[in-house]
Write a protein that binds this DNA or RNA. Structure first.
Lengths: 169, 169
DNA sequence: CATAAACCTAAGTGTAACACCTAGGTCAAC
DNA sequence: GTTGACCTAGGTGTTACACTTAGGTTTATG
């Protein structure tokens, strides 16, 4: 299978396949004649795994770690379980955050629909937003939705030379 | 107020304040003597707005659009309402996605806890993940959580020279 | 008053996970 | 035989900042 074939088969892009190949997650066979990359069934399996994991919100780094384990003959099952369980905790938190935000927005929109479009002074940008700012100050100091969702950083064995990095203190 | 003061007051970083200043969202006064930036109450209000909006998942571009409206004497309230309502639809979708993923993971973990740690053949990386891959193929072709959550791209009036960009076709 | 700690500036680089583009070679079809 | 669809490597662009560098400033202290 050539890149585009594989990509189409698993509903992703050729660029993505090339990316995973470049960073060493996929190991295709390279033709000596034309340099084309060929992926067999095993590599397709690997890609399938990667895509699933990404879909579940794991970082490429997490996946790299898992492969590093399993490629060295360890079962890696425990590692996978641990990472997934940890990830589940995060997803649950995100779920709650999203729910809170949803309610906040709905509440705000509901209130605003009852208010007239007051002409704004140069001071208050828009009284609708003032409401929002006021509401937000009631939210506990949790990480932003996007922040939380984009960071999985498997804190497995990486506290060597950089104990903490950005704990939004 | 100097950068760090402002940052601390609104629980963010000086770098973030400088970033918003550089891209033109904040307009501090620059001292002629030492080049220091000073932010008054109005700018603090603006930053508060920005942080709230970011917390709600709006992109910096969205915020730029809103400011562009309101800074030109329009109330902008309708724009703000529209953007927020659209954003709410997205958040609701994310909420549902997160819920689905949560259930998927819980289900998988539940099943795995009943299975032994089978030694993996070189073919199957880890049977746990096989389960996952199999389950995932039952998920409708929706955007990934992180993808959905990081893209807000206000498709307001921007269809000039780039109709579509990456509709994960 | 000297000096160190703490602050500031601009400008540059790094991050994640790809998408997109370029220049050029390859392959199948008409 | 040439058009169109495909491939390659390598480069840049994206988002929203964080971090680093190099150097000037202000404040606290001995």
């Amino acid at each position: 299978m050539k890149v585009s074939n594989l990509a189409k088969a698993l509903n992703t892009t050729a660029d993505t396949v090339r990316y995973y190949t470049k960073i060493g997650l996929l190991h295709p066979q390279k033709s000596q004649l034309n340099g084309y990359m060929f992926y067999n069934a095993q590599q397709q399996q690997r890609l399938s795994f990667i895509l699933t994991a990404r879909h579940l919100g794991f970082s490429v780094k997490d996946i790299t770690n898992i492969f590093h384990e399993t490629d060295n003959n360890h079962t890696g099952c425990k590692l996978v379980r641990d990472i997934i369980k940890q990830r589940l905790v995060e997803v649950e938190q995100q779920f709650l955050d999203a729910q809170a935000l949803m309610n906040l927005m709905k509440q705000a929109i509901g209130e605003w629909d009852h208010l007239p479009d007051k002409t704004p002074t140069s001071q208050s940008i828009c009284h609708l937003m003032d409401t929002f700012s006021a509401m937000q100050s009631q939210i506990p100091p949790t990480k932003s939705l996007t922040e939380t969702l984009s960071s999985t950083k498997a804190n497995l064995a990486e506290t060597e030379h950089n104990g903490e990095m950005h704990e939004n203190k």
